[in-house]
Structures are given as structure tokens and as C-alpha cells.
Write a protein that binds this DNA or RNA. Structure first.
Length: 303
DNA sequence: ACCCAGGTGCTGC
DNA sequence: GCAGCACATGGG
């Protein structure tokens, strides 16, 4: 087992951040993490000042396993404190959001797993996404064991395709069944390896993901951010739209006091409007806009 | 019964 | 380019 002390690391916040679905807090401070066909158990206890959001982590795996996989997975070599220090202090909402999201890291997850997970995520709530993915793993994933633990791997594209188009029934996937099946088949015939994707520039990689059925702009950006390591990707979903409307559009153009429980936009903005609002507020944080996105998303789902 | 969920595809202008 | 709608399923 490996002991690591890390600043700006909070495993409970990462677990609940909505970027990862196969991470469970089994008891306070004890987590099981599953990625592709791997598993690791981690204990996390706070260490040091709250401002640092530091944790002492114990990875219950060998050093080789940690160095070759989990260190990259948890983005351990990124200095989140330095990025937080660059926040414009006049943006009081972002200052609050960063405090709320402090300790979240952008994970480097398996790309194929992100493709299917975020196809499932559309029009679903996070607990429901988790349940669907777990059922998918139980049906199609290889049974794994490390001597003390048993779990199911995330399904390979081969496993999903071999079940046929009807093989996905009964998992509460709804209309996403077709998206998943067609994406699995396309991935088998023309899917790129993680290494090939990560060599591409952001716009090309984005086009590549958009070519799959069921992957639109939002899902593509989630794959790019949470799987491929493009920290500048900025997924715009319903929560981000609400934030952009309430915290940036309303305050700038209306001067209304809308910070408290502003509901849905009465006047609906177009996608371009939201992109412009995001660009004006957050392009200055490039190439780390995606980290900012996670901070404000974290703020929104706990308030 | 109604509205919403980490949206996308398709159609028609 | 952009709007309007259908698409399953579960929860408030």
C-alpha cells in the first residue's frame, strides 16, 4: 500500500462531482474506485489546514500499480492551488464556487468508458446514471477478482455488440439503447486508441467524438475533459446554463438581485448566447476552463 | 397530471 | 445557422 499526502485533494468531493460514476464511499473516508477493468480501495483523512484542503491518502495497491495508473488517473502532478490563485477576485461568484469545489481534481479516465457513461448521462439524474452503469457492468462486464475483492469490469465494445441490439433491454436505458449499440459497433470498426486521441488537437478530437451517434457537443466535451485530459473543454449543460444566466447575464444586463433562488430563465437564450457568456467570463482561464467548470458545477449541485 | 433530469437527432425554415 | 419536437425512464 502507498501513502500520499496531497494538497487540494478531497476524495469525497471528487466522488460526488458528477465526472465519475463508479466511485463509492463505502464508509466515511473509505472509497472503492473502479476504472475500466481496475479497482483500488483508498482511505482519505483530512490533513493540515482547511484552506489547503489537504488529505492523507492510503492506496491499497502496490507502488507499480499506483505509479503506472492511479497517479495519472487522479491528476496528481497538477497544482490546483496555482490555478485557484489566478481567479479574478472581482468575480465573487467564482470565488465562492472555487471554495465550494476546492479539492476536486479533473480525472483522467478511460475514454471508451467516458463515451458510454456520458451517452447514458443525458436526461438522467446522477444517481440514476450510476445505477444504469452498474447494471450494464453486471450484464456485460468481465468478472474480476484480486483475492480480497470481486467486481465487474466496464464492458468492452465487443461484449456490448455481441449482445445484439436487443441485448441492452431491461437496463432502464430507454432511447439511449440505440446510441450505445451503434457507438459500440462504430468504435469496433473505427475507434481510436486513447493515445491516438490524446495526440490530437482539441478541435479535431472534438469532431472525432461528434461523429458517433448519441454524442453531441455536451457529451463530447465531457469525454474530452474527464477522459482525454483536455482541461480547456467546457461542457455546457442545464446547470451551467442556469449559472450563466443567473450569475452573468442577469447581473450584467439586468442589474437584478437574482442571486437568491433565481429559477429558470424566463427568456430563453440560444446556445450561442451561452457560449458567449462562458467565453466572456471564463476564456481568461484558458487552458484550464474545464477546472473552472467543475468548480461552478460543484457549487450548483450542492446549493 | 405535470415538470425535470450533466441532450441528441431530425426536420423544416 | 436556429427553433421545435420526439425520444424512454424515474423521481419530485
Amino acid at each position: 500500500m502507498i501513502k500520499i499526502k496531497s494538497k487540494y485533494f478531497n476524495l469525497r468531493k471528487i466522488c460526488g462531482s458528477g465526472q465519475v460514476f463508479r466511485m463509492y464511499e463505502r464508509e466515511p473516508g473509505l472509497f472503492d474506485v473502479y476504472s475500466k477493468d481496475r479497482h483500488v480501495r483508498i482511505s482519505a483523512v483530512s490533513a493540515g489546514s482547511d484552506a489547503d484542503c489537504a488529505q492523507e491518502l492510503t492506496f491499497f495497491c502496490g507502488e507499480e500499480e499506483y505509479e503506472s495508473h492511479w497517479r495519472t488517473y487522479f491528476d496528481m502532478d497538477c497544482d490546483y492551488g496555482a490555478i485557484a490563485a489566478g481567479i479574478d477576485r472581482n468575480d465573487t461568484f467564482l470565488v465562492n464556487a472555487e471554495h465550494c469545489g476546492r479539492g476536486i481534481r479533473i480525472l483522467r479516465q478511460d475514454i471508451w468508458e467516458m463515451m458510454i457513461s456520458f451517452i447514458i448521462s443525458q436526461q438522467k439524474q446522477i444517481p440514476s446514471i450510476r445505477a444504469c452503469i452498474e447494471k450494464l457492468c453486471e450484464r456485460f462486464g468481465a468478472k474480476m477478482s484480486d483475492g480480497t475483492c470481486e467486481w465487474y469490469a466496464f464492458p468492452t465494445p465487443e461484449a456490448i455488440v455481441s449482445g445484439g441490439p436487443e441485448g441492452l433491454k431491461g437496463l432502464s436505458l430507454g432511447y439511449r439503447e440505440r446510441y450505445i449499440y451503434e457507438t459500440a459497433a462504430a468504435y469496433l470498426s473505427r475507434g481510436l486508441s486513447d493515445e491516438e486521441v490524446r495526440k490530437m488537437a482539441y478541435p479535431e478530437a472534438r469532431k472525432y467524438f461528434l461523429s458517433y451517434t448519441g454524442i453531441g457537443e455536451k457529451v463530447a466535451d465531457c469525454i474530452l475533459l474527464f477522459g482525454a485530459g483536455y482541461t480547456d473543454a467546457f461542457p455546457i449543460d442545464t446547470h451551467i446554463k442556469d449559472i450563466l444566466y443567473r450569475e452573468y447575464y442577469m447581473k450584467a444586463f439586468k442589474g437584478k438581485n437574482a442571486s437568491k433562488k433565481a429559477p429558470r430563465p424566463q427568456e430563453s437564450l440560444t446556445m450561442k448566447d451561452y457560449r458567449d457568456l462562458a467565453a466572456e467570463g471564463y476564456d481568461r482561464y484558458s487552458p484550464n476552463r474545464g477546472i473552472v467548470q467543475q468548480w461552478i458545477f460543484a457549487y450548483e449541485i450542492v446549493h
